[in-house]
Design a protein around this nucleic acid. Structure first.
Lengths: 352, 352
DNA sequence: TTGAAAGCGCTAACAG
DNA sequence: CTGTTAGCGCTTTCAA
């Protein structure tokens, strides 16, 4: 179990063989070593230019391409990074994370092996084993929203970093959005615009994002000597319907808020509808700030939504960089693996 | 150029070696051959059960995992599929395509090597070369919207299929959405609901989706003996603003349409705003149907948007299946590579 | 039924 | 400066 059977060699293939280093050597009239040296630009090989030219000419002529499998086998290094994530389809953020990782991998001439496992724990384990079999140099374990995870133990057999998630004992490097700072900045932005009564439309789910953003909101209030009004925070399901209900409830308070900080853009979308229903204009009657910067929502609401951007691209990038660091310095033991929180930049549009 | 230098072997690593087949053989007191036979469940090896058990016990004990690199090198088959795409981040569809491909690859014990190249042609070439170096069994060349492509010639060195795109000479298998059928079904749905004056809010860009959907719209009209009114099609930029303008223009016609078929959901989003501005209710005054089924928009507009779904997941799946087919039957020459159009199912919500 | 040995394509001591 | 050679870990023929 966990082993893939039947990778039988197929003998009836008619694929024409690709040139090997031997062919190049022959063509150039040198030995394989020489070819290897010039192709890899080995520092102290001192191959005369003329020979080098011959080799490169042969490479061109034969359309030779080194076999990464053989290289990896020999070098014990594949320049491949496993990317194990819970799901990519169901969230619009995934793309940015993967792209950040991919772009960075590309720069360092690494490739990404991608597996999406869904939420099935057994599949995650199999996925990690699969990557290990394929001799990845390291593994990125990613989730599509910030949360605690329990990766399969096998992950420790190679350098690994956590992307948008963390383990309770902090034994693995991790990068997540700085929810608190983001929440604080959002609230402070509203404060700075003169608002004193700020509603917080919160997700009902027990996730770090919710707690962090709410904490940030409270921090901002405290920093500005404004007392926290429990009635101003309203929990709902984290979609437009929840946002609608919450905004409705908040605006019907005897002394309603003049600004709404929404847990995410989807809730903000619902809040827009509620305010419209109440004939309240944004931002004149009520200011709104969201979170996540879901382009497709935020940029095209009327008025366009001011919101906090989740640093998915940056996190993906960070994950690869950190992983490469670990891979390249296997001897530096990490006694306390770095836990990074990346800022959520404010995206100013017109709803505040 | 095109060759990756300096994959130098690092000798100072302190990584502890993973067990090899030899270790397992030793542990089980058999030869490597025997281990290979039992692990691969070779049909006619006839290894006594008792020996097999010993081998499996050793595998467990050592936590042995076959080295896919060595296997691939030997078998000339890696069970890896290259996925080259233009971009994943900027579109919310990408996820579904990748997930479809990934899920299917997983089922067949294959892995996806992912590279996003952006629009740079040189990078695409490098990406394909990279995949070839890594000995992928085949390549999926994908775009994030339906269009014609010019993949680098190198792609022909392995089985390849095109995902959401096609080449002019149809020399590569390809899968795209059936825009015409989708457009036709959308229009027919409106027709069937009693509408006779249907506006078509079109993208101004010269892409297959636009032409196909418009053609479908015309087909539906013709099939129902309704004459095509040129004034009813209005071109705009394919975003909410464009949709807004188009809807405004259309509704101000002397005899305005009673239904709007929008090129995509984002334009529909703008049309919603226009109708709201005009105090027209959806679907009672004007029915709206979109295209793409961008979940986040379509499901949460008020009222939820009826639209046509782009079959991204299915296309990803199809691409992998077809590619695997090609890989497994290298001898069946494909004189006319299959060109598939997958249907765009109707997603009924409440805007019609 | 099991083992020895060749070789997939590459790198890097070591010799010359 | 260039070539010979020994593996990296695996599969598979061939022989025992």
């Amino acid at each position: 179990m966990g082993i893939n059977y039947n990778w039988v060699m197929k003998t009836n293939s008619s694929k024409k063989k690709r040139p090997s280093m031997k062919d190049v050597a022959q063509q150039a009239g040198v030995s394989r070593t020489t070819v290897s040296f010039v192709i890899n630009k080995v520092p102290n090989a001192n191959i005369p230019q003329e020979t080098q030219d011959r080799v490169w000419a042969a490479v061109d002529e034969l359309d030779y391409r080194p076999n990464a499998l053989a290289r990896g086998l020999r070098a014990q290094r594949t320049h491949a990074i496993g990317f194990v994530s819970d799901e990519v389809a169901t969230t619009p953020y995934a793309g940015n994370m993967i792209q950040g990782a991919q772009d960075q991998a590309w720069i360092h001439d690494n490739i990404i092996l991608l597996v999406n496992t869904g939420s099935n724990q057994e599949m995650k384990k199999t996925a990690v084993n699969m990557m290990l079999e394929r001799q990845v140099d390291g593994i990125i374990y990613a989730t599509m929203y910030h949360r605690e995870v329990h990766p399969p133990a096998e992950i420790n057999q190679v350098p690994a970093v956590l992307l948008d998630c963390f383990v309770a004992d902090r034994s693995l490097p991790s990068v997540v959005p700085d929810e608190v700072a983001g929440g604080q900045q959002a609230a402070e932005y509203l404060l700075q615009k003169g608002h004193r009564r700020i509603g917080f439309i919160s997700d009902a789910a027990d996730v770090p994002a919710r707690h962090g953003r709410l904490q940030g909101y409270k921090n901002a209030l405290a920093a500005n000597h404004i007392s926290f009004v429990p009635e101003f925070v309203f929990h709902g399901t984290s979609n437009p319907n929840g946002g609608y209900d919450a905004a409705m409830a908040l605006m019907k308070l005897p002394v309603p808020p003049t600004a709404l900080f929404c847990y995410n853009d989807r809730m903000a979308m619902g809040a827009y509808d509620a305010l419209r229903k109440l004939n309240l204009s944004i931002p004149d009657d009520v200011a709104i700030i969201g979170f996540d910067n879901q382009e497709i929502i935020a940029a095209y609401l009327y008025p366009p939504l001011t919101t906090m951007q989740l640093p998915h691209y940056e996190m993906g990038k960070w994950a690869v960089n950190t992983l490469l660091q670990l891979i390249n310095n296997p001897d530096e033991k990490q006694f306390s693996p770095v836990q990074v929180m990346l800022p959520c930049p404010l995206v100013e549009r017109e709803s505040v």
